[in-house]
């Protein structure tokens, strides 16, 4: 793993702008929440993110799972599954949105053409009672949406870093796990390989206030990530502050045994992190 400082780039501006717009809005009403979900937030958000494009119900092509009530609002597990058969075709990209978060667009994932990603799980910060929704884009450009409601509060403003010295000392460290297909709790698969990518990063939300200076601690998060095998792209991600501390992605894809898996990540301070792992049968 190497850390190479480079220039900041600004392709994350939409994420940051949405965050800044939302900071101006009092959060307390949302944070207390009600048990009656409303989609007014989504109605006003939809145009900002997807313009005039029509969005159809996912109808099983994409499904989302999350706990109804989060135990830890800063670590809410989200599970996405994609049906990629002859009729539905491949999924090209998926956008993960937490309606009531200060920066609602949590992440945009793009999948390689023949990556065959069928499952993707990550962990999110959820700041208020909110819909969490996934909008998938199919090969032919259609948008399909599914959503679930999560009761949580304070996930973005909650201080993370339980062990601050340790967190900063291991910044950017990565770990890749490959799961054996016959492990308990895992559905048997045919050709797909399941992996888990973990990156040490505080992923600061920018919403934690420094008590002494009364300034917000600057956002510092993983904004770009690519996972490739050999020379083909498996998945890329543009992320925002709603991805939890120590970003964690578990996914299934069509692996080619024998080819290395390579990960590159960049954060908002211009630090780059990279690592690679041989994918050998022994690691399966």
């Amino acid at each position: 793993m190497t850390i190479i400082p480079t220039d900041r780039h600004n392709r994350m501006m939409p994420f940051v702008l949405l965050a800044l717009m939302a900071i101006a809005v009092p959060l307390s009403a949302n944070a207390q929440g009600t048990s009656v979900p409303e989609s007014t937030t989504w109605n006003s958000l939809k145009g900002d993110v997807f313009g005039q494009q029509a969005i159809a119900p996912a109808d099983g092509v994409v499904s989302i799972e999350a706990p109804k009530r989060a135990e830890d609002a800063a670590l809410v597990p989200i599970d996405l599954r994609f049906k990629t058969d002859a009729t539905s075709g491949q999924i090209k990209a998926v956008t993960l949105i937490v309606d009531e978060n200060p920066a609602p667009v949590a992440a945009v994932f793009k999948f390689g053409k023949d990556a065959g990603v069928t499952h993707l799980a990550t962990r999110l910060r959820v700041n208020a009672y909110s819909y969490v929704r996934a909008i998938a884009e199919t090969e032919d450009g259609k948008l399909l949406m599914t959503q679930t409601f999560v009761k949580a509060s304070g996930g973005c403003s909650a201080p993370a870093l339980k062990n601050q010295d340790e967190a900063m000392a291991s910044l950017g460290k990565m770990k890749l796990r490959v799961f054996p297909s016959n492990a308990p709790g895992i559905e048997p698969k045919t050709r797909a390989t399941e992996m888990q990518l973990m990156i040490r990063h505080p992923n600061n939300s920018g919403l934690q206030m420094d008590q002494l200076t009364r300034y917000y601690i600057p956002a510092h998060f993983i904004q770009g990530l690519t996972v490739s095998q050999g020379d083909r792209l498996i998945m890329s991600m543009e992320g925002g502050i709603s991805i939890s501390e120590d970003p964690n992605f578990r996914f299934e894809f069509d692996a080619r045994p024998g080819e290395d898996v390579r990960v590159e990540a960049a954060d908002t301070e211009g630090k780059k992190f990279q690592d690679e792992w041989p994918l050998q049968p022994s690691s399966l």
């Binding site: 403003s157 601050q164 002494l212």
Partner: peptide, 20 residues
């Protein structure tokens, strides 16, 4: 020695989250 740092990053959150 770590307590001032911990309170600096968490204090405000504590004040907010216990209000209710």
């Amino acid at each position: 020695h770590n307590l001032p740092r911990a309170l600096a990053s968490r204090g405000d959150y504590y004040l907010q989250s216990f209000r209710a």
